[in-house]
Every structure is written in structure tokens, then in C-alpha cells.
């Protein structure tokens, strides 16, 4: 089985990145051969659908399990539809995460942990005035 880990850097010693769709790298480890490859994630700056695109990228490479920190609802649907295992709340380095997975220590997740657009980490274009207070986050999405 191939396992993909969202990573802040390109190698096995890099820390796990807590975002799925907008993680800068994925390190993909083949558990049978022990080989690994690194993908620079082209969806980091996507305006929309970064999680779905990333799920597609990994799915088409034959990845069977994803290890990451948080994930939104759309990539969960995409990974589930292709029978990909999802493990969340992962921290430490890529190789530590893969070892924990190999030892069967990770529980598969039951659902998304963050709302859509979580990884964007920005405010919105909506007004900031008193009548608008408290709604900026919800209305900040670009449509």
C-alpha cells in the first residue's frame, strides 16, 4: 500500500503539515518496497477546491491511505469515494507518522475536522462595520 503524508518539507524528516489541500508537499511511502517519492503540491495557491484537487492527485497515484492534520468535507467525500483511508490529527515527522501507521496505531477518521476554506487562513472582502460584526468569516469566501 502507498501512504501519503502531508508535509512541510520534501523529505522523511520534515514535519507533518496540519493542512491537507494546501500542504506544500506530500511524501508518498510505498510500504511494500520501502521507497518514497515527494510531490510538491500544485494546489497550495488554488482559489477553490484545493482539497478536491489534492485528493485527485493522490488518488491517481494509487495512494491507499492519507495521513494529515485536518481535512475539509469535500476531500473527505473524494477520498471516501475512492476507498482511501484517512488518518487525522497526525503530528511529528513524516517517518514517525508512517511508522505509527505501519504498527497499526492510527485510527481511521470518521469525518471532516474543519470547514471548507479552512486552509485559506484569510479574512474576507465583506464589510467590517458594526452591522457586519461576527459575519466576516462566513462571508469571506470568494464566489
Amino acid at each position: 500500500m502507498k501512504v501519503a503524508v502531508s508535509a512541510q518539507g520534501p523529505d522523511l524528516d520534515s514535519p507533518v503539515d496540519s493542512r491537507f489541500g494546501r500542504a506544500p508537499y506530500f511524501v508518498i511511502v510505498d510500504l511494500e518496497t520501502g521507497n518514497h517519492e515527494t510531490l510538491a503540491n500544485p494546489n497550495v495557491g488554488a482559489a477553490q477546491g484545493a482539497g478536491i484537487q489534492t485528493a485527485r492527485l493522490l488518488g491517481n497515484r494509487g495512494v491507499g491511505a492519507v495521513l494529515t492534520g485536518n481535512i475539509g468535507p469535500n476531500p473527505v467525500s473524494a477520498l471516501r469515494a475512492t476507498g482511501t483511508e484517512i488518518h487525522l490529527g497526525i503530528s511529528g515527522t513524516v517517518s514517525q507518522a508512517v511508522e505509527a501507521f505501519r504498527r497499526g496505531e492510527l485510527e481511521p477518521c470518521s469525518g471532516p475536522t474543519v470547514e471548507a476554506h479552512f486552509g485559506l487562513g484569510r479574512g474576507g472582502g465583506r464589510g467590517q462595520g458594526p452591522r457586519e460584526a461576527g459575519r466576516g468569516g462566513r462571508r469571506g469566501r470568494r464566489t
Binding site: A47, G49, A50, I52, Q53, R56, G59, N60, A78, A81
Partner: peptide, 18 residues
């Protein structure tokens, strides 16, 4: 441009709200 339709291996997925 919005990932409202995607194809992963032999699965087609639609996200009409996108």
C-alpha cells in the same frame, strides 16, 4: 477551475455547490 467535477481513477465526483 473550481473543482466542481473531478475524476479519480474510475470514480466521477460532482460538487454542484462549487
Amino acid at each position: 477551475a473550481y473543482s466542481a467535477i473531478t475524476v479519480i481513477r474510475d470514480v466521477v465526483l460532482l460538487f454542484p455547490e462549487l
